[in-house]
Simulated assay, not measured.
Amino acid sequence: MRNSTSVEESIDALAHRYLDRFRGGRLQAGLTEFVVFGLKQAWACVFGAALLAVIIGARLWYPSDAGLARNDFLTLAAVVIQVLMIASKLETLRELRVIVLFHVVGTVMELFKTDVGSWAYEAEGVLRIGAVPLFSGFMYAAVGSYMVRVFRLFDLRFDRYPRRWITALVAGAIYVNFFSHHYIVDLRWMLLAAVVLVYGRCVMHFRVFRRRFRMPILVSFLLVALFIWFAENIGTWSRAWLYPNQLEGWQAVSIDKLLAWFLLMIISVVLVAWVYKPEPLDASDAAEVPRLRRVAP
């Protein structure tokens, strides 16, 4: 694995030992790929998972009369998590640039959306910009962390990836619409159609353990957006932030938000693609697939 960490190497080594010990056939090889996929996905989510765990813990156990406001505690905890990620080399400085960009893009959106009443945070603490506590930017950074890590962990390759300048135009239009739809017509369905048109032919190739797999990239966008929607439900249950219909009592986040997260995925992919240029499945990779499948049929 390219630029792998010790944890990632340990996951592959454990899978090798399992297959060597049991000399697994088709079933064992398939189950191994499935387990390794889950472990690497969990490892890619480590920043977001740690931040979500802190948010849940603060909801359940943080004392209401503490001298440090809960929002300030969450901000400091997020900073500590980020510092540990860099100090332990779980993220590189190159990846950190993307994560900081996610932080800035997300914070700007937060400032606007809270001002127009799309959602709200508890009015407490000093580590904030206006009505937006600084930990909110780290939630977008968690998405960025996942994106850059999964790009490396699964050695992503692409067939028919659209030109990056076209994807940038679509992403820019999506970002503008998050603001402009409060004042003019909402173009999200037209933008969704544009995403399908631009990315519809693109296929993503990813290596799990010994094999490469393929998936239409639009399916991957939807799966990640669905995962974020589930995490958003946990975040609002923890009262890290609330939508207007949740102020009188928690209820599940509207499924309509899934479309917003799907469109936000396009912005995320474009930001990552400007650091990690999407590469095609080259001849050596294509030749390697049959060989890998013979090793693990």
Rank of each mutant, 00 (worst) to 15 (best):
L223P: 10
D65Y: 02
G200V: 02
M109S: 11
W229D: 13
A260W: 04
I81V: 15
R214L: 06
A286H: 06
R214K: 15
L74Q: 08
G24M: 04
R21G: 10
Y161W: 15
L226C: 00
W189L: 15
A194F: 03
I255V: 15
A49I: 03
V104S: 02
A15M: 03
L101D: 01
M265R: 05
L218H: 04
H181I: 03
A283K: 11
W189H: 14
E122F: 07
V195L: 09
L264D: 04
D12P: 05
F158T: 02
Y183G: 04
T167V: 10
V54T: 12
N245E: 15
D12M: 11
P216G: 05
F227D: 02
V208K: 05
L19I: 13
V208Y: 04
I217Y: 14
L153R: 06
G200T: 05
S268A: 15
E8C: 07
V224H: 08
G172I: 04
F230W: 14
L226W: 02
F135C: 11
W229T: 05
L197Y: 12
N233C: 14
E91A: 01
L264I: 10
A260G: 14
F262W: 13
R149F: 03
I56Y: 01
G38A: 08
S6G: 15
E288V: 04
I56P: 04
I184S: 15
G235Q: 08
S4W: 12
I129H: 02
R188Q: 11
F206C: 12
V170F: 09
A231R: 02
R164H: 14
R21Y: 07
V98A: 08
Y175K: 02
S88A: 06
V295F: 12
L76F: 13
K113C: 05
K40I: 00
W241F: 12
F112T: 00
I86Q: 06
F34V: 06
W189K: 08
V126D: 08
E91M: 03
W237F: 15
P280A: 03
L263V: 00
A77W: 02
I99N: 11
R188M: 05
G48Y: 01
Q82T: 01
G67E: 09
D115W: 07
N177C: 13
V198D: 06
L74I: 06
V269Q: 10
L153C: 09
T75E: 03
Y121D: 08
A287I: 00
L259G: 15
A240L: 12
A58C: 13
Q246T: 00
A77I: 01
H103C: 13
A15C: 11
L96W: 12
V295T: 02
I234R: 08
R188N: 07
D65N: 13
P278S: 05
I129C: 06
E9C: 08
A50C: 12
R164L: 15
Q251T: 10
